[in-house]
Design a protein around this nucleic acid. Structure first.
Lengths: 221, 221
DNA sequence: CGCCAATTGCTGAACTGTGATTTATTAATT
DNA sequence: AATTAATAAATCACAGTTCAGCAATTGGCG
């Protein structure tokens, strides 16, 4: 089962796809979509140029598969999980969602994919539409449900759903983007590098203050 | 002085550089650095492939020139301007800075350059270092001065300077990035599209609450 | 068990298109 | 007519994709 030093290569029909996707994920995150070369993916997966084309139609399909395996699958898992929790306040639920997101997306390579999409969205409308439909929309619906639940129960004051989602979402996007761009430059963006999760919790706490029932003087957000 | 329909082209030694830079700015913002082709820049400037090379060494130098003409020049202008204002509270000064920034950067094509840098920083370390030295650092120093001033006068409680700068800066970066990526996809990120400046002012107000002297129970930010 | 032939996963060279840069040539200007 | 801005063709390198051939595996047969 170990590596046979003798043979020049091995046949691994079953393992190849996931190996290729794993290599692709790492490279997409590191270099972006356009700058990632098919041959780099192949080499990182331990195969040669042609092999990825035996398992995927082209570069675009590889990217979609990567997004499905990471972001999309995770959003579905979170939806299923959070749907089961009853008897918990919506604020608490949002904190749980934040921590879950941080564990499975924010602090992982998947976050790099989100940054990639923000970076290259305008150049690849097809991919962007795919990502919007499969990742962004479900994620927003998940958050929307929680917020709606809080408004129905009287825990939250009435707010515009999309605005609230944006407000809750912005710090997360910010963190993902900075940690995969300037934060890689020494000496830049030290707050977020030090303890991103603390930063995110503080932001969430702040935003929730504005959403809770005993409304402050300023009604906006 | 107008367009002569007869001749196939005109000689415009003086006007070319700025025409080329203007075209380059638009294209860099629209497509990003890597995806912008030299020939696209040339055509958009009304010349052919070779012409830009008569005025600039290469693509990288064109990009640097664009950044200098927009971001760098504007940061210097803001520094000079704000240094002259006395007898104004530091909070007010920050609001003025925000509005000035919004007028001259946030709402202009220059914002697209900031998004571009966040998007492609890791692929072009030379450009990133340039941008960091010429744009980010001076901008952070500008903000740092204002905050320090507020702490010295007792208007702000003592805060970690870099943390405070990050906190003030994050919503601006967020706005620039979103408005040049997903916001271009119909139906996405409607908050920021509706009225970004209002969103930014609200964020600033919020952050300043945490910085003002009568400290709240939670000391973080 | 061990050898051989069919199967097929994989390779690597070839094809094709693209894009940054150079340069010989053309023509607007003086 | 001289100057030189600008063109347009050529160069060179790279990267997505294809494909003819090679070799690791497999399964049957002795």
């Amino acid at each position: 089962m170990g590596e046979t030093g003798s043979s020049r290569w091995q046949r691994k029909k079953d393992a190849r796809p996931s190996e290729i996707l794993d290599a692709a994920l790492t490279l997409f995150v590191e270099k972006g979509y356009l700058a990632t070369k098919m041959e780099d993916i192949a080499r990182a997966a331990g195969v040669t140029k042609g092999t990825p084309y035996l398992y995927f139609q082209n570069k675009e399909e590889i990217f979609k598969a990567v997004v499905r395996e990471t972001i999309v699958a995770r959003v579905h898992a979170m939806s299923a999980q959070l749907a089961q929790l009853h008897g918990i306040g919506s604020s608490e639920l949002l904190f749980l969602a934040l921590e879950d997101w941080w564990t499975h997306i924010g602090s992982t390579r998947a976050a790099g994919l989100c940054k990639l999409m923000a970076a290259e969205a305008t150049n690849f409308p097809d991919l962007t539409r795919f990502y919007y439909d499969e990742a962004i929309l479900p994620a927003r619906q998940l958050l929307g449900h929680i917020i709606q639940r809080g408004m129905d129960s009287g825990e939250f004051r009435p707010v515009h759903l999309d605005y609230a989602i944006d407000a809750l979402t912005a710090p997360m996007m910010m963190t993902m983007i900075l940690s995969h761009s300037f934060a890689l430059v020494p000496g830049c963006c030290d707050t977020l590098k030090d303890n991103p999760l603390e930063f995110l919790k503080t932001s969430l706490r702040l935003t929730l203050q504005g959403m809770h029932q005993p409304a402050p003087q300023d009604a906006r957000t």
